[in-house]
């Protein structure tokens, strides 16, 4: 995972702690350990799925990778360039190559701008079109690519359905011809039948435009369909990374197992006795010592309580942070 890697994106030991609002006079400051030493790489053309429950830090991670917030420490390398060290024009140039699609298309589209303006804005900011007419042409082409009718150009976001709004969000991300798209729960707010349409669109675009995805979701059904590899996050840390077929066939980390066991399977003929993990995720302000999953883990033993297990390779290139392996 060092500089010699041919990864498109490398994240190394990334950390972000948020101070909890404290009063002026209180001396001690509580910190939310949102992202706490996360490392992974994404190869060009790959889809890496990131799964985790609310508050595990997956959205913070997405925002860190786009530099919408600045990390406390760690490295982000994009195409072997140090992304965090970039300032000014250089930053803007590199930013074009990483774009984001948000969860809620309702709040991620400026309600006072027309669809055409929203998608045309990145083109305008980076002066990618020689003229106004050329820009419009580019926007109409993007409409076609994401399956929006051309008359969408002068309509406002509220005039579209949820699925169409998410198509606008995707078109905006595509406008700068990015190499990496970070999709932060892009289908969670959509109805099932629309969700399938948008997932297909993501998959089509990927092959057509040779894109790389970091696809974030809480839904393992969605991730196991779209991802090549899946990383599992718990309380600010990655506990397991493996290729999708292997992870689905044989989840190693007890938390991954718990996640899979909890997914409702739409097939009544396979009704199974579920092994459920007890308890709830602890507060990210004071995460448990040692392995953060140990208070809920059915297999926890002495070392789990004291020293955090490192994310280390086991069989076939998969990584897991657990003393069982």
């Amino acid at each position: 995972m060092e500089h010699s890697s041919n990864n498109l994106l490398d994240v190394l030991n990334l950390k972000k702690y948020f101070p909890v609002q404290t009063t002026f006079f209180s001396g001690s400051r509580d910190l939310v350990h949102a992202v706490d030493g996360v490392s992974f790489g994404i190869q060009p053309g790959e889809t890496l799925g990131l799964v985790g429950e609310s508050g595990c830090g997956k959205s913070t991670l997405a925002r860190l990778i786009l530099r919408l917030i600045e990390p406390d420490s760690g490295e982000i390398r994009f195409a072997r360039e140090d992304f965090l060290g970039k300032r000014g024009e250089e930053l803007r140039r590199l930013r074009r190559k990483i774009q984001i699609v948000f969860q809620d298309p309702q709040s991620s589209l400026n309600p006072r701008m027309k669809a055409g303006e929203i998608i045309g804005e990145p083109i305008k900011i980076h002066s990618l079109a020689p003229s106004r007419a050329a820009r419009k042409e580019m926007v109409l082409d993007l409409f076609r690519q994401v399956g929006l009718p051309p008359d969408s150009y002068s309509r406002y976001p509220h005039e579209f359905s949820g699925g169409q709004r998410q198509r606008i969000g995707i078109a905006r991300a595509l406008a700068l011809n990015p190499e990496l798209i970070v999709a932060d729960e892009p289908v969670s707010s959509l109805d099932v039948s629309i969700q399938a349409q948008i997932l297909n669109l993501f998959s089509d675009l990927k092959t057509r435009k040779n894109l790389t995805y970091l696809f974030i979701s809480h839904d393992l059904r969605v991730l196991s369909w779209i991802s090549d590899r899946i990383a599992v996050m718990y309380l600010g840390e990655i506990v397991e990374i493996a290729s999708t077929p292997e992870l689905v066939k044989k989840p190693l980390h007890p938390y991954t197992q718990a996640l899979f066991a909890a997914v409702p399977i739409p097939d009544p003929s396979t009704r199974r006795e579920k092994i459920l993990v007890p308890g709830e995720p602890p507060s990210p302000i004071r995460p448990p010592s040692g392995c953060r999953f140990h208070p809920r883990c059915p297999y926890a033993f002495a070392p789990c309580k004291s020293t955090p297990p490192p994310l280390k390779p086991v069989e076939n290139n998969r990584l897991v942070a657990c003393y069982l392996y």
Partner: peptide
């Protein structure tokens, strides 16, 4: 039923059969 991604099918490149429209 068909628009739910099947987890254990492993059919990676298959398209989800989505209902068109809204």
């Amino acid at each position: 039923i068909n628009s739910i991604p099947k987890m254990f099918s492993g059919g990676k490149d298959l398209k989800l059969s989505a209902l068109p429209g809204t």
